[in-house]
Amino acid sequence: MMKAAKCTDCHPPHGIKSYTELSAQERIAKCTRCHGDHADRHRWLPNTALHFLHLECTSCHSPDSRKGMIFEFVRRTATGKERLRHEDLMVLFVEAAHPKASIDRDGDGIVSSQELSDFFVRLRRTAGKGVSIEGAILVTGVHHDFTATRHREKECATCHSRKAPFYDSMYLLLPSAEGGELVQVEDTVLSALPLSLSINLILLGEEKIRYSDLRRLLFSGPEGRAELLRELGLRWIDFVGLGLASLLIGLFSLHAILRWVIRP
C-alpha cells in the first residue's frame, strides 16, 4: 500500500537544487519514485514520451497551479544535451555582473524577443552552434493539492491552443550564482526570427496570425507596422499563404464572371 506523501519526499532538506532549477525530467523523477507505472497509465496520451520530455506531472495533476513556458540555454554534447551553467555565461559575458543585465538591456524586467535574439546571437558566436534553447511547460506557482483532476486536462486543446495559460507566463531560466532565476520573456520569442528557429519546443495550435495582426498591419502607424513586421517572424507564412489564396480566389472569381458574361 502506498504511503501518504510527506513534504520531504519532494523537498529533501539536503537537496542542493531549488525547485526552480529542476528540469521537467528531474521533477518527473520525484513523482515516479512512487508512481512508476506512469507511462502505462498515460497510453491514452499521443506521443507519450515526447510529452514527458517537456511536461512535469503537476502540469496536469495540480490544476490550480500556475503554469509557465520555461526556456533555458543548452549545449549539445557527445551524449546528449547539457544546460549552460552560470560559469559558462559569465565567462562569455564578462562585461556584466549578471547575465540578466546582458540580456535585458533596457532594464524593464521583461526580455523582449529582440533582446533575447541579440543575446543569443552573441552566445552562439562565442559558444558555438551547438547551443540552442530548450523549452518545457512547468509549474511556476505550485498549489499543493495533487488529488484534484479535471476532465479539461485531458482535452488536447487545453494546452494546444493559443488560449493555453502558459502563453501569458513565459520565462527564461537563467543560471545564477545562487541557483536559478526566472526572467520574464515576451511571447513573441516563439515566432521571432532567427531566434525562434533555435527553440526546441513547438506546440500544435501555437502560431498563427490573428485578426489583430491584420488590423495592426493595415491601420497602425509606421512605427506600429514596423514593430509588427519584426514580431511576425514565422507567422509570415500565414500572411503569405492566406494572402495568395485570397488573391487567387479573387482572380478566379473575376475570370469566371468574365467567362459567363462574355460567352463567345
Partner: peptide
C-alpha cells in the same frame, strides 16, 4: 534545422497544396 524549421517547411508545403488545389479545381472548369 530543428522543430520550428520542420514546421515551417511542412506548413509552407501545405499552403502550396492549398494554392495548387484552388488553381487545379478552377482550371478543371475551363
Amino acid at each position: 534545422g530543428g522543430l520550428r524549421a520542420l514546421d515551417l517547411l511542412h506548413v509552407a508545403a501545405g499552403y502550396a497544396f492549398l494554392l495548387y488545389t484552388l488553381v487545379h479545381i478552377y482550371m478543371a472548369t475551363t
